[in-house]
Structure formats: C-alpha cells, structure tokens
Nucleic acid binder design. Structure first.
Lengths: 198, 198
DNA sequence: ATAATGAATTTAACAGTGTTAATAATATGA
DNA sequence: TCATATTATTAACACTGTTAAATTCATTAT
C-alpha cells in the first residue's frame, strides 16, 4: 500500500522539521524528544513509531542539513575561474558555512549518532563528499602548473585537515580569534601552499 | 584553619581519582555523579560539598590529564637534535598521545565544561601551552635554515591545525584510516612543509 | 448504520540523569 | 558531658530516553 508509505514519510517530515527548528534555536544539547513531539503537534511517544530512537531522527536532520551545505558549497563553483582562486573560495565557504551552522558541525563531526540507517547513508554517500570539491580544484591547480602532480595528495590532506582543525577550535571556542581572523588565515595558508616553488 | 584546607583537598582528590578511573574505563558519556560517589566511597551528594557541579569536577580531571600530557610531550625533547626531526617527533607524539587518550581530547576540545574555576585555569595556563613546543621547534627550523623567518607563523598554524583536524577525524571515527596511517601522513606532511625550497 | 478488527496515538511507567533541601551523623570546643 | 558546628546522607524534584499498556481513531464487513 503506497499510501501508507506516503503518510509515513509525511509524519517523519513533521518530526524532522520540528527537530531542525529546535536545533537551530537551542542547539543539540537542549533538544529532547518531548520538545520535538510538542512542536510537531504529537505526543513524544509517537516519534518511536517512525524512528528507532532519537539518534535516527537526528541522522535524518543531518542528512537534510548536508544537502543544504552541499548546495551552498557548489554555488561557489565558477567555470573558467583560476583554480587557485576557486580553491580559496571553496575553502572560505566551507569554513564559513560550518561557522554559521555550528549544529551541522556538531552532528557531523562531534556527536556519535551510531550506525546511520541505510536510507540516510545513501543520501549522504550520493552527494559527492563535501571535501571532494576541494580535492578536485587542487588537482586543477596541478594541471594549471601551480603545483606538481605528486604534491596534490599531500596538499589536499593538509588543507582539508587544517580547515577542520580550525573549525574545531573556533566552534568550541578554544580559540579566542574571531571567525574573520581565521578566515584570513585560511586564505593565506592556501596562497602559501599553492604557488610555483622557485 | 589549615587542616580544613588539607582535608578538603584530600576529599577532592578522592572524587577526582574516582572520576578519572571511570573516565578511563567507560568514557565521558557514561560517567555519572552517582558512579563517582560510589567509587569514592561516599554518597553522590557529598560531591557537591567540594565541587560546584559535575563540570567543575571534570575540569579538575582535565587539569590532571593535561599535566601528564605535557610531561609525555616534553619527554620527546632531545637537546642537539636536528630541529626538523625534533618537530616531527613532537607532532607524532602529540597526535599519538591524544589517540591513546581520547577522553583527554574529549574534555579539552569537545566537551563544554563552562567557565573553569580560577585554580584550574592557572594550572592550565602555567603549563606552556601544549602547542607552544611545536612553535618553538618550528622557529628553530628557521634558525637552522630549513625555512624562512617569515614562514614560521603560517607553518606553525598549518601544522597545528592539521594535526587537530586529523585527530578530530580519527577519534570521532569519521576517518576509516588506522592511527598508523594517519601518523605516517603527519610525518610526510611535516617533511613536505619543512624543507629548503629550491 | 452498526459492529468488529487493525492501526495509530497517547498515557503511564521505568530507569536513569544532575542538583538541592532537609535530615542524620560526626567531630569540635567549652 | 553537653551544645554547637561541620560534614554526610537520604529524599525529593525536574529532567532525560525509551517501552508497554491503554485508548482513540479509521477502515472494513455484516
């Protein structure tokens, strides 16, 4: 019966949207199943008819947020742009997007949501890995002669992990620096790494 | 009355040690004030006579762990060693120490323990910042002619945040790579970054 | 239309959490 | 030894996620 499936999807959507609202307003820590049920207009126990547990619900939220994140990142793509400039744009956008969406960072990198349901893993796997765009444009930098072919791998790792490290510091306020200052650092780091060695 | 102070210190120590044991065995998430009280041989409520809340207790645990961490790191210092080799050792040890002590990473970078009590902030501030050693040996690399003076800052930032980024991935098992593989990456990254540009 | 069956939802309950106020036990000083 | 502080414990509160039982609702058959 396909109606069942449709209705089930809608119910899930109510809870997911309610959860996303609460996440945006109060953060991960202050979310509770009772709040989600309340906001969705149902009892808290109803949630368990549609999700295995609260982690599964949060995983669906994460998948949603990842789609948005990917769209925001890919919007920075500009055909014909110098690959070095393109790379810097990706790096900046990647960092600033997580800065502005700390809940996404929390759910993706910090929180332990356990084994994701297949449906969501697919969704997340189908999207080119967020870091993939970085790698592509670094490869393009090699093609353009900025760097050597055999530098691509190490540089990709370096830039990606550096950005993630800075995100960790900024979002967990271990760093006192403003996001602006860190953004500049990312720019200058990439400029430093991607240039013809004389 | 100085006896009071001494007794209070001892009581704190009982709870701190009990908490550290539980942290080592079960991790941060499974720790509870009732377990700590049990293990320390007191009622759970007694804890609140010595600590403002559980976060304060955890902050004391963190301070303890940081002392050990600093000792482990500084043990890698070897006078007269080539600064590039010294830097690689620091990087490796820094990474592997957190890998082997994920609770330390959790408490230091992930968990939000709120405003630390002054007593502990001092303790942590007195210790040369853990990353400080890295910076020193990078500066030494400049002195030795491996890199230019004006590269020190960007390289220090780059190496530090890269290691933290990798730690985040490994410890939150976002990365499927073994710690061994990541360790090799750290080595090769530092080797790549610290060398005379021809 | 009415009764019966099955599905969806809610209420009640459980075991756990951190924290606080009132009570019990202990140690201190006169 | 008795009165007074100090310290420790018990009981309680307001939460949390989760499950089982009870209830409501919708659909189908008579």
């Amino acid at each position: 019966m396909n109606n069942k499936e449709l209705q089930s999807q809608r119910m899930k959507r109510y809870f997911i949207d309610a959860a996303k609202e609460i996440l945006a307003e109060d953060g991960v820590k202050k979310l509770s199943v009772r709040k989600v049920g309340d906001r969705a207009g149902y009892s808290y126990a109803t949630i368990y008819n549609y999700f295995r547990d609260v982690n599964e619900l949060l995983t669906y939220c994460l998948a949603d947020m990842l789609e948005d994140a990917y769209r925001a990142l890919i919007a920075e793509k500009e055909e014909g742009l110098d690959p070095r400039v393109q790379l810097i744009r990706y790096g900046e956008r990647y960092f600033s997007y997580f800065s502005e969406n700390p809940v996404l960072f929390q759910l993706l990198f910090i929180e332990d949501l356990g084994t994701e349901p297949e449906e969501v893993t697919e969704k997340m796997g189908d999207l080119p890995s967020v870091g993939q765009l970085l790698i592509e444009s670094i490869a393009a930098c090699a093609m353009a002669g900025y760097i050597l072919e055999d530098e691509v791998e190490v540089l990709a790792e370096l830039i990606a992990s550096s950005i993630h490290g800075k995100l960790l510091f900024v979002l967990k306020r271990r760093s006192l620096e403003s996001q602006d200052v860190v953004l500049k650092k990312i720019r200058s780091e990439i400029r430093y790494l991607i240039r013809r060695k004389r």
